[in-house]
Design a protein around this nucleic acid. Sequence first.
DNA 1: ATAAGTAGTGAATCATTATTCATTCTTTGT
DNA 2: ACAAAGAATGAATAATGATTCACTACTTAT
Lengths: 202, 202
Amino acid sequence: MAYRETEKMRQRKAEARKRIVDCTYQCVAEGGFRSARVTRIAGLAGVATGTIYRHFESREDLFAEIFRLATQREVDKVAEALASGGNGAERLERALKGPQMAWSLIAEPVDPKVEEERLAYRKAYANLFEKAIREGIDEGCIPDQDACQSSTCLVGAIAESLVGPLSPTQTTQENSATEDNNDPLVNSIIRFCMQGLTGTRR
Amino acid sequence: MAYRETEKMRQRKAEARKRIVDCTYQCVAEGGFRSARVTRIAGLAGVATGTIYRHFESREDLFAEIFRLATQREVDKVAEALASGGNGAERLERALKGPQMAWSLIAEPVDPKVEEERLAYRKAYANLFEKAIREGIDEGCIPDQDACQSSTCLVGAIAESLVGPLSPTQTTQENSATEDNNDPLVNSIIRFCMQGLTGTRR
DNA sequence: ATAAGTAGTGAATCATTATTCATTCTTTGT
DNA sequence: ACAAAGAATGAATAATGATTCACTACTTAT
């Protein structure tokens, strides 16, 4: 027998896969999941359409992966913020400042499999917040309340403000990905959310 | 010349149109816009598929109309609540209790034309809230803040809580359409939102 | 009854895309 | 150099479903 997969090949395949992922991300960022065509992705990535299917079961699976990837980083950021020092209210406030770019993904209409990921994503956020709220309640810096429900409100308020159709920010990827801008917006969301939680004017 | 459209005919057409609208609504309520097939709608309405196109330009137009209809009633309810007596904070609180069923529509992935309606819908709500918040600020019962931004947070928090993927309520139409239930849920949303606005524990 | 015009029909068409797979190209070990 | 295996290709296929349109059925006015 002759061919045995070698490191060099593994690497080349990995590169192709990455190229596919990157181009998919780009397509999704431009026109959303709905309009991202397998053919176009293949074209951008410089592979044949068939090749996509050597790396992913189906279009949906590819999309689900994109979603997970784009999402993971942001959730991690929030988790990190919630894990660091300060009291519960302070940590929450820091966490609210965290996510910047991936929120845009939670607004987009998609296939069932991606929808599943989206649910997981929102839930991940909500869970982080819920835990933090509970801690705040235990510490006494947040009044007693239904932490689960409040965390849902938080996610909703933030999502709508940052990426919903009402959002004042342009929904282009570039600007929402930048680091520092739209501070007044973020600040007023934070104020609203913190007041909603604590019932304390600041 | 012979045939001239008569009242009887006008009426019959109107009935067919209404049947189409109703069945579309039913389909959408069951499986969402995505999966509502023109053929099935026609079948349910007892007309040929072609007939749909005598009443509506296109599938999208039909859907847009459904959306408008389902939506209008709810927005009216909120407007009414905001118009009645009491101070700003009280009126807002009443309005938050208003919408029940149509929120489910704002979560659903749809075609561009429907998307447009959805935007209008969210905006309608947000505008109502924004106006009410401004009034509350003028009256002094709500502290000064960015009314526009706060109204966006309200819409987001409510939408997520009632119909988002995190919603604890089943997303079936029947129960969310009922009048009185899920009070604890609604109450905690209201508490969160009112605190977010007023910064006052209740 | 007849003619003129409108409404209704639904099988056929058209358009769109994801997916397949027979074929060609590369890599690898001998 | 050769054979065995895998990888890549992309034209062809398949599936879906909206939309059309040639035709029939009905309504109306004379």
